[in-house]
Structures are given as structure tokens and as C-alpha cells.
Design a binder for these strands. Structure first.
Ligand SMILES: [Mn+2]
Ligand SMILES: [Mn+2]
Ligand SMILES: [Mn+2]
Ligand SMILES: [Mn+2]
Lengths: 145, 145
DNA sequence: ATGAAAGTTTAGCCTCTGCTAAATTTGAAT
DNA sequence: ATTCAAATTTAGCAGAGGCTAAACTTTCAT
């Protein structure tokens, strides 16, 4: 392969890896706000303990992350009080929920079992571009009972 | 929701998040090994610079990671020399390539454009369970020209 | 054969995301 | 009102995965 083509290939490939790293840097915030929104809708308020239990991490980990989310303008909280989302947080949660739902329902429609669809969609959702999400939506429209 | 059901829900959900975290901890090794195999097949030998250029990271980052991969028994190298894979490394690369190919071809068959399929598959591949991979394979068998 | 370019390594720094153990605050039952 | 359990926070630690700058080795052209 000549030198020019080699460079082009490297550029194309590195773009994909960069996108994946970028997806990962946004992933945790998305999962936290979506989870907090779910807990608030289910139980009225969200406590740190609920979040830790559902994520499968330690309380202290949640405390530290909530601080970061507060700095990002997604979460509000007073010391020793339950957590709430900002307007921006609710927006992000709603976007995340819609995307997550499409990915999970798509896997189900593809013939995957419920547990697997639930588990796989939790990771896949963060790497699905708008274009792919639309393709999944079309598939659902064609193949939904 | 009664207390028992609440605990059950937390267990189910935390299992999904744990799986995603576990997927991420294996992801980088898989990408490195697959990439090194590709470069060796294309160019005869793989140098650190090639890897860094295609991943879009600094040389020093690659050096450090190669040390870890060597400790994991996936890579062999002598100082200032090109990189090679161990038998285990080649096996992992082959498994990864097959999976990656199925995911990328699946996205194409779903109607996604080439560039998007290339980019999205780079992240999605690591979160696809065997069951989902099989479902994608069935879809390809049904919908391939 | 030697000097410059290309590639590799080291050193030192950073952030993110996890953990445990100990301290603190809140809330509820007695 | 007191006490005690649950929840929260703080403090301190660790490893993964990035970076730049400087030092070192190899390769290649003259
Ligand atoms: Mn997720
Ligand atoms: Mn791959
Ligand atoms: Mn990948
Ligand atoms: Mn991922």
C-alpha cells in the first residue's frame, strides 16, 4: 500500500476510535441522570443509596459522581438531602430514555431474549449514532406486532 | 412498590451496569490485539507508531499499554523492535475480527451508511453478547444479497 | 562512515472511576 | 427527649488510560 493510502486509512480508523472514546466520556453522566429520573418517577424522590444499589457501586462513588454532575449543571442537591435533576438534567434523561427504549425494543424485535436485551442495550445505547437509531426505528416500524 | 420487588429490580439493573463495566475493562485489549493483527497482515510487521496513528493516541500511551498486554500474555516484544502477538493474542484477534465483521455487516444490512457502520460498530462490538451476535447472524442470513 | 530522521522509551504529570474505613447527619422509635 | 439505625459525606488509596517533553536507539541517505 502506498504512503498516501496508508495515511488515509489511519485517519479513517482513528476517527472511529476517537468517537468510541468520546462516547465513553459521556456515558456515565447519561446513565446517572436516566437512573435518577427513573427513581424519582417511581418513588417520588431519589436518594444516593438507591442510585448506588442500582448501579452496583459504593455509596462513596455515587457521592463523588454527583458532585461532578452538579458541576455539569445536571443535578442539584443540598447536603444530606435527596437528589434532584435540573431542567437540563431532565432533558438529558428524557433523550436517554427514548434512545435506550428504542435500542432495547429493537433487540427484542430482532429475536433476543428479554434479559439479554436489557443487559446488552445498557452498553450499546451509548454507541448508537442518530443514523443507526433511525435505522432501528424503521426496523421496529416494519417488524412490530 | 413493596420492599422485596424493589430489591429484585435493583439486582437486575445493577447486573446490567456491571456487565457494561466489565465489557469496558476488556475493550481496549481487544482493540489493540485486533489492530496489531490487521497491521501485521497488511504490512508484514507492526510498529508502535502504526498502532498509535490508527488509534489516534500518543506513542507513549501505546508503549504503556503494550507493556500491560505483554503482562497479560497477548503480545511479545524486544526493546526498540516491532510488536508481535502470542498464540493467545492471535486467537483473541481472530475472535474479535469475526465479531466485529458481523456487527458491521449487520449495520450495513440494516440500512446504515458505510462510514456510520464503520464508526458505530467500533464501539457496539464490545457490548454484543453471544445471543445477540447469533440474532444478528440470523438477520444477515435472511437479508443478505 | 556518519549525520539526520524516524521510531521508541522514560519520566512525570493529569483526570476519571472505582474502593474502604471513619466521621457526620438525619429521622424514627421508644 | 434520647437513642440508635440508616443515610451521607469525607479522607485517603489505587489502577486505567490519557498527555508532553526529553532521552535514547535504529535506520537510511549521503
Ligand atoms: Mn447505559
Ligand atoms: Mn474490533
Ligand atoms: Mn472496538
Ligand atoms: Mn462502550
Amino acid at each position: 500500500m502506498p504512503g498516501k493510502a496508508r495515511t488515509t486509512k489511519a485517519k479513517l480508523q482513528s476517527a472511529a476510535f476517537r468517537r468510541t472514546r468520546s462516547d465513553h466520556s459521556k456515558e456515565l453522566a447519561a446513565d446517572y441522570v436516566e437512573l435518577i429520573a427513573d427513581i424519582i418517577d417511581e418513588r417520588g424522590t431519589a436518594r444516593g443509596t438507591d442510585v448506588a444499589l442500582r448501579l452496583g457501586v459504593a455509596n462513596a462513588t455515587v457521592v463523588k459522581m454527583l458532585k461532578r454532575l452538579t458541576d455539569m449543571g445536571l443535578v442539584t442537591q443540598e447536603p444530606y438531602r435527596p437528589i434532584d435533576l435540573t431542567g437540563e438534567g431532565w432533558l438529558m434523561a428524557e433523550t436517554g430514555r427514548k434512545k435506550h427504549q428504542i435500542v432495547e425494543r429493537f433487540l427484542l424485535a430482532l429475536g433476543v431474549g428479554e434479559e439479554t436485551a436489557r443487559i446488552d442495550s445498557e452498553g450499546i445505547e451509548h454507541h448508537v449514532s442518530d443514523e443507526t437509531l433511525k435505522a432501528m426505528g424503521r426496523f421496529l416500524a416494519r417488524n412490530s406486532s
